[in-house]
Simulated scan of single mutants.
Amino acid sequence: MLLGAALTMVLGILTPSQALSSINLNVILFLISLFTISSALEVSGFFSYLAYRLLISSRSMSKLILKVFGLSALLSLALSNDGIAGSFTPVIVSMRRQAKISVKPLLYALAFGVTIGSVALPVGNPQNLLIALESGMPKPFVLFAFYLLPPTIINILITYPLLLLLFHGSNDDIVINETRRPEELLVNKRLAYTAIIILLMLIPLYFITDVFNVSPYLTPPVTLTFMGASIIYLVSGSDRRVVAHNVDWTTILFFMGLFIVSEGALESGVLNVLANYLPQPTTLIGVFISGLFLSQVISNVPMVALYIPLMKELGGVLPSNSVIWIGLAASSTIAGGNLTLIGAASNVIISEASEKRGGGEGFGFLEFMKYGVPITIVNTVIYYAWLSYVHIPI
Protein backbone atom coordinates (compact mmCIF):
# COMPACT_ATOMS: atom_id res chain seq x y z
CA MET A 1 0.00 0.00 0.00
CA LEU A 2 2.89 2.35 0.77
CA LEU A 3 4.41 1.51 -2.62
CA GLY A 4 1.14 2.45 -4.28
CA ALA A 5 1.10 5.72 -2.33
CA ALA A 6 4.66 6.49 -3.40
CA LEU A 7 3.83 5.76 -7.06
CA THR A 8 0.94 8.26 -7.05
CA MET A 9 3.53 10.97 -6.30
CA VAL A 10 6.34 9.63 -8.50
CA LEU A 11 3.97 9.39 -11.48
CA GLY A 12 2.61 12.88 -10.87
CA ILE A 13 -0.94 11.84 -10.03
CA LEU A 14 -0.70 13.70 -6.72
CA THR A 15 1.74 16.28 -5.44
CA PRO A 16 3.34 15.56 -2.05
CA SER A 17 1.12 18.26 -0.52
CA GLN A 18 -2.02 16.67 -2.00
CA ALA A 19 -0.92 13.25 -0.77
CA LEU A 20 -0.34 14.47 2.79
CA SER A 21 -3.62 16.41 2.88
CA SER A 22 -5.51 13.29 1.74
CA ILE A 23 -4.58 11.44 4.97
CA ASN A 24 -7.53 11.64 7.33
CA LEU A 25 -5.86 12.49 10.63
CA ASN A 26 -9.12 11.94 12.52
CA VAL A 27 -9.08 8.27 11.50
CA ILE A 28 -5.34 7.88 12.17
CA LEU A 29 -5.54 9.46 15.63
CA PHE A 30 -8.65 7.46 16.50
CA LEU A 31 -7.02 4.16 15.48
CA ILE A 32 -3.84 4.92 17.44
CA SER A 33 -5.94 5.73 20.51
CA LEU A 34 -8.16 2.65 20.16
CA PHE A 35 -5.16 0.38 19.55
CA THR A 36 -3.54 1.84 22.69
CA ILE A 37 -6.50 0.73 24.82
CA SER A 38 -6.43 -2.73 23.24
CA SER A 39 -2.65 -2.93 23.70
CA ALA A 40 -2.98 -2.02 27.39
CA LEU A 41 -5.48 -4.85 27.91
CA GLU A 42 -3.08 -7.30 26.27
CA VAL A 43 0.10 -6.09 27.97
CA SER A 44 -1.60 -6.10 31.38
CA GLY A 45 -2.48 -9.78 30.91
CA PHE A 46 -6.24 -9.14 30.86
CA PHE A 47 -6.85 -11.07 27.63
CA SER A 48 -4.84 -14.04 28.90
CA TYR A 49 -6.76 -13.90 32.16
CA LEU A 50 -10.09 -13.92 30.33
CA ALA A 51 -9.12 -16.81 28.06
CA TYR A 52 -7.90 -18.97 30.93
CA ARG A 53 -11.07 -18.27 32.90
CA LEU A 54 -13.04 -19.40 29.85
CA LEU A 55 -11.02 -22.60 29.62
CA ILE A 56 -11.27 -23.68 33.26
CA SER A 57 -14.98 -22.82 33.45
CA SER A 58 -15.91 -24.93 30.40
CA ARG A 59 -16.46 -28.65 30.70
CA SER A 60 -17.05 -29.33 27.02
CA MET A 61 -15.87 -27.92 23.67
CA SER A 62 -19.38 -26.75 22.77
CA LYS A 63 -19.44 -24.49 25.84
CA LEU A 64 -15.92 -23.24 25.13
CA ILE A 65 -16.84 -22.44 21.52
CA LEU A 66 -19.85 -20.50 22.80
CA LYS A 67 -17.74 -18.49 25.23
CA VAL A 68 -14.97 -17.69 22.73
CA PHE A 69 -17.51 -16.75 20.06
CA GLY A 70 -19.67 -14.67 22.40
CA LEU A 71 -16.81 -12.89 24.16
CA SER A 72 -14.98 -12.03 20.93
CA ALA A 73 -18.22 -10.66 19.45
CA LEU A 74 -18.85 -8.58 22.59
CA LEU A 75 -15.31 -7.17 22.73
CA SER A 76 -15.43 -6.31 19.02
CA LEU A 77 -18.37 -4.01 19.65
CA ALA A 78 -16.05 -1.58 21.39
CA LEU A 79 -12.53 -2.49 20.27
CA SER A 80 -11.17 -2.96 16.79
CA ASN A 81 -11.75 -6.49 15.50
CA ASP A 82 -8.17 -6.69 14.25
CA GLY A 83 -6.89 -5.91 17.74
CA ILE A 84 -9.06 -8.59 19.34
CA ALA A 85 -8.03 -11.10 16.65
CA GLY A 86 -4.33 -10.45 17.19
CA SER A 87 -4.54 -10.45 20.98
CA PHE A 88 -6.76 -13.49 21.45
CA THR A 89 -5.19 -15.89 18.93
CA PRO A 90 -2.00 -16.63 20.94
CA VAL A 91 -4.12 -17.18 24.03
CA ILE A 92 -6.39 -19.64 22.23
CA VAL A 93 -3.40 -21.51 20.82
CA SER A 94 -1.99 -21.78 24.35
CA MET A 95 -5.17 -23.63 25.37
CA ARG A 96 -3.86 -26.65 23.46
CA ARG A 97 -0.98 -26.86 25.91
CA GLN A 98 -3.22 -26.37 28.92
CA ALA A 99 -5.80 -28.95 27.80
CA LYS A 100 -5.93 -31.72 25.22
CA ILE A 101 -8.22 -30.01 22.71
CA SER A 102 -8.24 -29.04 19.04
CA VAL A 103 -8.05 -25.27 18.76
CA LYS A 104 -9.25 -25.10 15.13
CA PRO A 105 -12.98 -24.75 16.05
CA LEU A 106 -12.01 -22.05 18.56
CA LEU A 107 -10.05 -20.14 15.93
CA TYR A 108 -13.07 -20.16 13.62
CA ALA A 109 -15.31 -19.11 16.51
CA LEU A 110 -12.92 -16.19 17.08
CA ALA A 111 -12.80 -15.25 13.37
CA PHE A 112 -16.58 -15.24 12.94
CA GLY A 113 -17.12 -13.67 16.36
CA VAL A 114 -14.90 -10.62 15.76
CA THR A 115 -16.45 -10.10 12.32
CA ILE A 116 -20.11 -10.31 13.36
CA GLY A 117 -19.65 -8.37 16.59
CA SER A 118 -17.75 -5.55 14.87
CA VAL A 119 -20.66 -4.73 12.54
CA ALA A 120 -22.85 -2.97 15.09
CA LEU A 121 -20.83 0.17 15.99
CA PRO A 122 -18.46 2.57 14.20
CA VAL A 123 -15.59 1.58 16.53
CA GLY A 124 -15.91 -2.13 15.74
CA ASN A 125 -13.69 -2.14 12.66
CA PRO A 126 -11.73 0.28 10.44
CA GLN A 127 -14.22 0.30 7.54
CA ASN A 128 -17.10 1.24 9.84
CA LEU A 129 -14.98 4.07 11.23
CA LEU A 130 -14.23 5.29 7.71
CA ILE A 131 -17.93 5.36 6.85
CA ALA A 132 -18.88 7.11 10.10
CA LEU A 133 -16.27 9.85 9.68
CA GLU A 134 -16.14 10.24 5.89
CA SER A 135 -19.79 9.91 4.85
CA GLY A 136 -20.93 12.92 6.85
CA MET A 137 -23.95 11.04 8.20
CA PRO A 138 -25.55 12.65 11.26
CA LYS A 139 -25.23 10.91 14.63
CA PRO A 140 -23.29 7.88 13.36
CA PHE A 141 -23.16 6.04 16.70
CA VAL A 142 -26.91 6.30 17.18
CA LEU A 143 -27.66 5.29 13.59
CA PHE A 144 -25.27 2.33 13.63
CA ALA A 145 -26.74 1.07 16.91
CA PHE A 146 -30.37 1.47 15.81
CA TYR A 147 -29.90 -0.12 12.39
CA LEU A 148 -27.24 -2.75 13.06
CA LEU A 149 -27.33 -3.78 16.73
CA PRO A 150 -30.62 -5.79 16.52
CA PRO A 151 -29.65 -7.83 13.41
CA THR A 152 -26.17 -8.34 14.88
CA ILE A 153 -27.69 -9.86 18.03
CA ILE A 154 -29.89 -12.08 15.83
CA ASN A 155 -26.86 -13.21 13.81
CA ILE A 156 -24.88 -14.00 16.96
CA LEU A 157 -27.75 -16.16 18.25
CA ILE A 158 -28.09 -17.96 14.91
CA THR A 159 -24.40 -18.41 14.14
CA TYR A 160 -23.55 -20.31 17.34
CA PRO A 161 -25.76 -23.35 16.52
CA LEU A 162 -24.40 -23.14 12.96
CA LEU A 163 -20.87 -23.42 14.35
CA LEU A 164 -21.85 -26.47 16.39
CA LEU A 165 -23.40 -28.00 13.28
CA LEU A 166 -20.31 -27.32 11.18
CA PHE A 167 -18.00 -28.65 13.90
CA HIS A 168 -20.32 -31.43 15.00
CA GLY A 169 -17.44 -33.63 16.17
CA SER A 170 -16.16 -31.01 18.60
CA ASN A 171 -18.13 -31.75 21.75
CA ASP A 172 -15.52 -33.63 23.73
CA ASP A 173 -15.04 -33.12 27.43
CA ILE A 174 -12.16 -30.83 28.39
CA VAL A 175 -9.39 -32.15 30.61
CA ILE A 176 -7.07 -29.50 32.03
CA ASN A 177 -3.40 -30.52 31.92
CA GLU A 178 -2.08 -27.75 34.10
CA THR A 179 -3.83 -25.64 36.70
CA ARG A 180 -2.94 -22.20 37.97
CA ARG A 181 -4.68 -19.28 39.59
CA PRO A 182 -6.17 -17.01 36.87
CA GLU A 183 -5.11 -13.94 38.88
CA GLU A 184 -1.47 -14.85 38.18
CA LEU A 185 -2.00 -13.94 34.54
CA LEU A 186 -2.90 -10.33 35.43
CA VAL A 187 0.66 -9.04 35.45
CA ASN A 188 -0.36 -5.39 35.79
CA LYS A 189 -3.70 -5.05 37.54
CA ARG A 190 -3.63 -1.25 37.68
CA LEU A 191 -3.14 -1.01 33.93
CA ALA A 192 -5.89 -3.57 33.28
CA TYR A 193 -8.39 -1.83 35.55
CA THR A 194 -7.55 1.57 34.06
CA ALA A 195 -8.08 0.36 30.49
CA ILE A 196 -11.36 -1.38 31.41
CA ILE A 197 -12.71 1.69 33.22
CA ILE A 198 -11.77 3.96 30.30
CA LEU A 199 -13.44 1.60 27.84
CA LEU A 200 -16.61 1.38 29.93
CA MET A 201 -16.73 5.17 30.12
CA LEU A 202 -16.09 5.75 26.42
CA ILE A 203 -18.99 3.66 25.07
CA PRO A 204 -21.79 5.68 26.74
CA LEU A 205 -19.88 8.93 26.08
CA TYR A 206 -19.86 8.17 22.34
CA PHE A 207 -23.66 8.05 22.37
CA ILE A 208 -24.13 10.99 24.75
CA THR A 209 -22.00 13.30 22.63
CA ASP A 210 -23.71 11.95 19.50
CA VAL A 211 -27.19 12.79 20.77
CA PHE A 212 -26.42 15.99 22.71
CA ASN A 213 -24.07 18.70 21.56
CA VAL A 214 -22.34 18.86 24.94
CA SER A 215 -19.37 20.75 23.58
CA PRO A 216 -17.89 21.24 20.12
CA TYR A 217 -14.62 19.85 21.47
CA LEU A 218 -16.19 16.70 22.92
CA THR A 219 -18.47 15.84 20.01
CA PRO A 220 -15.98 13.85 17.89
CA PRO A 221 -15.25 10.37 19.27
CA VAL A 222 -11.65 11.03 18.28
CA THR A 223 -11.19 13.57 21.10
CA LEU A 224 -12.65 11.28 23.75
CA THR A 225 -10.67 8.23 22.68
CA PHE A 226 -7.43 10.23 22.45
CA MET A 227 -7.99 11.46 26.00
CA GLY A 228 -8.51 7.86 27.17
CA ALA A 229 -5.30 6.72 25.45
CA SER A 230 -3.30 9.59 26.96
CA ILE A 231 -4.48 8.60 30.46
CA ILE A 232 -3.31 5.03 29.83
CA TYR A 233 0.16 6.25 28.87
CA LEU A 234 0.19 8.50 31.93
CA VAL A 235 -0.54 5.72 34.45
CA SER A 236 1.12 2.71 32.77
CA GLY A 237 4.48 3.34 34.46
CA SER A 238 7.22 0.92 33.43
CA ASP A 239 4.90 -0.73 30.86
CA ARG A 240 4.43 2.54 28.94
CA ARG A 241 6.96 1.71 26.24
CA VAL A 242 5.63 -1.85 25.93
CA VAL A 243 2.08 -0.56 25.42
CA ALA A 244 3.28 1.89 22.77
CA HIS A 245 5.40 -0.76 21.05
CA ASN A 246 2.48 -3.21 21.02
CA VAL A 247 0.16 -0.79 19.16
CA ASP A 248 -0.68 -2.10 15.69
CA TRP A 249 1.53 0.38 13.83
CA THR A 250 1.48 -1.67 10.63
CA THR A 251 -2.26 -1.00 10.32
CA ILE A 252 -1.62 2.73 10.89
CA LEU A 253 0.94 2.76 8.06
CA PHE A 254 -1.43 0.77 5.90
CA PHE A 255 -4.16 3.39 6.39
CA MET A 256 -1.84 6.28 5.59
CA GLY A 257 -0.95 4.62 2.32
CA LEU A 258 -4.58 3.70 1.69
CA PHE A 259 -5.79 7.30 1.96
CA ILE A 260 -3.17 8.45 -0.56
CA VAL A 261 -3.96 5.62 -3.00
CA SER A 262 -7.69 6.31 -2.73
CA GLU A 263 -7.16 10.01 -3.45
CA GLY A 264 -4.96 9.07 -6.40
CA ALA A 265 -7.67 6.76 -7.75
CA LEU A 266 -10.16 9.62 -7.52
CA GLU A 267 -7.87 12.21 -9.13
CA SER A 268 -6.75 9.92 -11.95
CA GLY A 269 -10.28 8.99 -13.01
CA VAL A 270 -9.93 5.31 -12.16
CA LEU A 271 -13.16 5.45 -10.14
CA ASN A 272 -15.03 6.76 -13.17
CA VAL A 273 -13.92 3.69 -15.10
CA LEU A 274 -14.84 1.35 -12.23
CA ALA A 275 -18.30 2.89 -12.03
CA ASN A 276 -19.17 1.39 -15.42
CA TYR A 277 -18.67 -2.14 -14.08
CA LEU A 278 -20.12 -1.83 -10.58
CA PRO A 279 -23.73 -2.10 -9.39
CA GLN A 280 -25.59 1.17 -8.82
CA PRO A 281 -24.03 2.62 -5.63
CA THR A 282 -27.20 4.49 -4.70
CA THR A 283 -29.20 1.34 -3.91
CA LEU A 284 -29.05 -1.02 -0.96
CA ILE A 285 -28.77 -4.10 -3.18
CA GLY A 286 -25.99 -2.36 -5.13
CA VAL A 287 -23.79 -1.76 -2.08
CA PHE A 288 -24.46 -5.28 -0.78
CA ILE A 289 -23.36 -6.87 -4.06
CA SER A 290 -20.29 -4.62 -4.24
CA GLY A 291 -19.41 -5.33 -0.61
CA LEU A 292 -19.71 -9.06 -1.23
CA PHE A 293 -17.53 -9.32 -4.32
CA LEU A 294 -15.07 -6.41 -4.15
CA SER A 295 -14.02 -7.29 -0.60
CA GLN A 296 -12.76 -10.64 -1.89
CA VAL A 297 -10.51 -8.89 -4.40
CA ILE A 298 -8.96 -6.05 -2.38
CA SER A 299 -10.17 -6.79 1.19
CA ASN A 300 -12.94 -4.85 2.88
CA VAL A 301 -11.05 -1.80 4.17
CA PRO A 302 -9.56 -0.77 0.78
CA MET A 303 -12.93 -1.60 -0.83
CA VAL A 304 -14.76 0.84 1.46
CA ALA A 305 -12.07 3.51 1.10
CA LEU A 306 -12.46 3.43 -2.69
CA TYR A 307 -16.24 3.06 -2.63
CA ILE A 308 -16.97 6.06 -0.37
CA PRO A 309 -15.82 8.68 -2.92
CA LEU A 310 -17.52 6.65 -5.64
CA MET A 311 -20.83 6.90 -3.78
CA LYS A 312 -20.38 10.61 -3.05
CA GLU A 313 -18.99 11.79 -6.39
CA LEU A 314 -20.68 9.51 -8.91
CA GLY A 315 -23.67 8.07 -7.09
CA GLY A 316 -24.73 11.25 -5.35
CA VAL A 317 -25.48 9.45 -2.08
CA LEU A 318 -26.23 12.15 0.50
CA PRO A 319 -25.12 11.95 4.14
CA SER A 320 -28.79 11.92 5.11
CA ASN A 321 -29.35 8.70 3.13
CA SER A 322 -28.06 6.78 6.10
CA VAL A 323 -29.41 3.33 5.26
CA ILE A 324 -27.19 3.13 2.16
CA TRP A 325 -24.08 3.97 4.18
CA ILE A 326 -25.14 1.52 6.88
CA GLY A 327 -25.66 -1.12 4.19
CA LEU A 328 -22.11 -0.56 2.94
CA ALA A 329 -20.79 -1.10 6.48
CA ALA A 330 -22.78 -4.29 7.00
CA SER A 331 -22.05 -5.86 3.61
CA SER A 332 -18.33 -5.07 3.51
CA THR A 333 -17.84 -6.41 7.04
CA ILE A 334 -19.98 -9.55 6.96
CA ALA A 335 -19.62 -10.58 3.34
CA GLY A 336 -15.98 -9.52 3.27
CA GLY A 337 -15.00 -11.01 6.61
CA ASN A 338 -16.89 -14.28 6.78
CA LEU A 339 -16.86 -15.46 3.17
CA THR A 340 -13.16 -16.00 2.42
CA LEU A 341 -9.84 -15.92 4.23
CA ILE A 342 -8.60 -12.78 2.42
CA GLY A 343 -11.86 -10.84 2.73
CA ALA A 344 -10.80 -9.25 6.03
CA ALA A 345 -7.47 -8.54 7.69
CA SER A 346 -8.67 -10.12 10.95
CA ASN A 347 -8.89 -13.55 9.27
CA VAL A 348 -5.31 -13.31 8.04
CA ILE A 349 -4.13 -12.07 11.45
CA ILE A 350 -5.68 -15.09 13.19
CA SER A 351 -4.33 -17.55 10.64
CA GLU A 352 -0.77 -16.18 10.66
CA ALA A 353 -0.61 -15.80 14.44
CA SER A 354 -1.85 -19.35 14.87
CA GLU A 355 0.64 -20.80 12.39
CA LYS A 356 3.47 -18.90 14.06
CA ARG A 357 2.62 -20.17 17.53
CA GLY A 358 0.68 -23.36 16.91
CA GLY A 359 2.64 -25.28 14.31
CA GLY A 360 0.41 -25.24 11.24
CA GLU A 361 -2.98 -24.60 12.85
CA GLY A 362 -3.86 -21.78 10.44
CA PHE A 363 -6.76 -21.57 8.00
CA GLY A 364 -6.75 -23.04 4.51
CA PHE A 365 -8.42 -20.95 1.79
CA LEU A 366 -10.91 -23.61 0.67
CA GLU A 367 -11.33 -24.84 4.22
CA PHE A 368 -12.33 -21.34 5.32
CA MET A 369 -14.93 -21.12 2.54
CA LYS A 370 -16.37 -24.48 3.60
CA TYR A 371 -17.37 -22.94 6.92
CA GLY A 372 -17.67 -19.32 5.82
CA VAL A 373 -20.07 -19.64 2.88
CA PRO A 374 -23.12 -20.96 4.83
CA ILE A 375 -22.53 -18.50 7.68
CA THR A 376 -22.13 -15.59 5.24
CA ILE A 377 -25.33 -16.47 3.40
CA VAL A 378 -27.37 -16.54 6.60
CA ASN A 379 -25.80 -13.38 8.03
CA THR A 380 -26.13 -11.40 4.79
CA VAL A 381 -29.80 -12.32 4.32
CA ILE A 382 -30.59 -11.19 7.88
CA TYR A 383 -28.82 -7.84 7.51
CA TYR A 384 -30.29 -7.13 4.10
CA ALA A 385 -33.82 -8.05 5.18
CA TRP A 386 -33.55 -5.92 8.31
CA LEU A 387 -32.22 -2.85 6.48
CA SER A 388 -34.79 -3.25 3.69
CA TYR A 389 -37.84 -3.24 5.92
CA VAL A 390 -36.84 -1.41 9.10
CA HIS A 391 -36.48 2.34 8.78
CA ILE A 392 -36.01 4.27 11.98
CA PRO A 393 -36.40 8.07 11.91
CA ILE A 394 -33.62 9.78 13.86
Rank of each mutant, 00 (worst) to 15 (best):
I198L: 14
I232F: 11
L25D: 11
L50N: 10
N125E: 03
F146C: 01
P374N: 12
S332T: 15
S331Q: 02
V317R: 02
K100Q: 14
P151N: 11
K63N: 12
S60W: 15
T179W: 07
P220Y: 15
G86W: 00
M137P: 07
N81G: 08
L199G: 05
S94H: 10
N300G: 07
T152Y: 10
T209P: 14
S60I: 13
L234N: 06
L387G: 03
A109E: 09
L110Y: 02
N213R: 14
L34I: 15
E267S: 10
E367N: 09
A229Q: 01
R180D: 12
L284E: 07
R181G: 13
L2V: 05
A329P: 02
Y233H: 15
A85Q: 04
A385Q: 07
I196M: 06
N26Y: 10
L199R: 03
L202E: 00
L314D: 06
V222C: 08
L202I: 07
N26G: 14
R53Y: 11
V261D: 09
T380W: 11
L164H: 05
L29M: 10
M369A: 11
W325K: 01
M303Y: 04
N338Y: 12
I116E: 11
F293K: 06
L121S: 10
M61Q: 09
K370W: 02
I349G: 00
L41A: 09
P204V: 04
P182D: 06
V323L: 08
N338I: 14
A265R: 03
I394L: 13
T115S: 12
E184Q: 15
G237I: 01
V273E: 10
L157W: 06
F288M: 06
I65M: 03
I394Y: 01
N338V: 13
T223E: 12
L74C: 05
I197A: 11
M137T: 04
S268Y: 09
F146G: 01
F88C: 09
Y307G: 01
I349P: 03
V378R: 10
I153F: 08
V348K: 01
A5V: 03
V261Y: 00
